[in-house]
Amino acid sequence: MFLSFVRVCVNFLWHCQGIYGYPIEIQALFFMALRCALSMLKHDAEGKECIERIVKRLHALSYHMRSYFWLDFQQLNDIYRYKTEEYSHTAVNKFNVIPDSIPDWVFDFMPTRGGYFIGNVSPARMDFRWFCLGNCIAILSSLATPEQSMAIMDLIEARWDELVGEMPLKIAYPAIESHEWRIVTGCDPKNTRWSYHNGGSWPVLLWLLTAACIKTGRPQIARRAIDLAETRLLKDGWPEYYDGKLGRYVGKQARKYQTWSIAGYLVAKMMMEDPSHLGMISLEEDKQMKPLIKRSSSWTC
């Protein structure tokens, strides 16, 4: 089932995350792959070089993601006050982000408590959207620090209607519309607003949310989402995805009796009944990983 996720991730990224590289989903999956590889390599002469290179990459990747992709209320306020056209190593606005490029919805969406890894960061361009898969994988792989993991859970609780709604779980929030939709998706008719990869709700994501909830000690969030799913999935014929801001409608091109919709629900239930199953898909924090370097209050994403 996890390999199926990789496939849908690539498809999703192609349609709805643009062409600028480094999206949160790919970075989180890459981090997880590196950590898994590290645990499988032999500590012998042949594996030593690979291990050293992986450890170096993990340190750099974790620092980059935790520093530049992370957004919370304080970080958002800092970006809002950014100066632009800064140069040299003393620059605070490392990516020359123009504060006026912050979309209006972010200010209302960001709760006082909570945070998340944004969709993408590149020079003069930030994708502030929430992507469920990347944030859940960040928790399960321990790319997110314990504090960041708890903040992601706080965000989900605070913005339940937007991220969960009536059918778990929004793959991305918010949907892209009008001219931006035409550019990013190539006018793909499947990816109209609040549908399919463009803000649609995917029941398969239920097991990832459940795993993240168990790891962070917040099983009540997963239980609430599972209860919601149980009211409709069987009745609706286990569709692939749902449409609408709240996920009220079976997707316009959703196939019924999808294996991963059924499997996602079953895995979520099994993990709730026996949380020890979490060990098969979750990695604990690496105590040797360099801690997040503290920044000044003005240095942010």
Rank of each mutant, 00 (worst) to 15 (best):
H197M: 04
M270G: 05
L58F: 03
P203G: 00
I118F: 02
L71T: 07
T231N: 02
Y242H: 00
S101A: 14
M32I: 02
A175K: 01
H59N: 14
S296Y: 03
E240W: 04
G186H: 04
A37Y: 00
F107E: 07
I118E: 00
E284V: 06
L155H: 05
P189Q: 12
L283W: 00
G21L: 05
V10T: 08
S276K: 12
A158E: 12
D243I: 13
R232C: 02
R232G: 00
Y241M: 06
V204C: 11
K294Y: 03
Y87R: 14
R182C: 11
D154T: 06
L233S: 01
R248L: 12
S282V: 10
I137G: 00
G165W: 07
P275N: 13
I102V: 15
H15F: 10
E157G: 10
E157I: 01
P239S: 02
D108R: 10
L278H: 09
M271K: 03
N198I: 01
G115Y: 00
S298K: 13
D188K: 04
A222M: 01
F5V: 05
Y257I: 05
I221A: 05
A222S: 00
E284I: 06
A37H: 00
F117Y: 14
G217P: 14
Q148T: 07
I102K: 12
M40R: 13
M110W: 05
I293G: 07
Y196K: 04
A211P: 08
G200N: 07
G217L: 13
R232K: 11
V106Y: 04
E177A: 07
W202I: 04
P103S: 08
Y87W: 09
K252L: 09
H89K: 12
K294F: 03
L206P: 08
L3N: 04
S261Y: 08
C136M: 15
E25T: 07
P168F: 01
E177F: 09
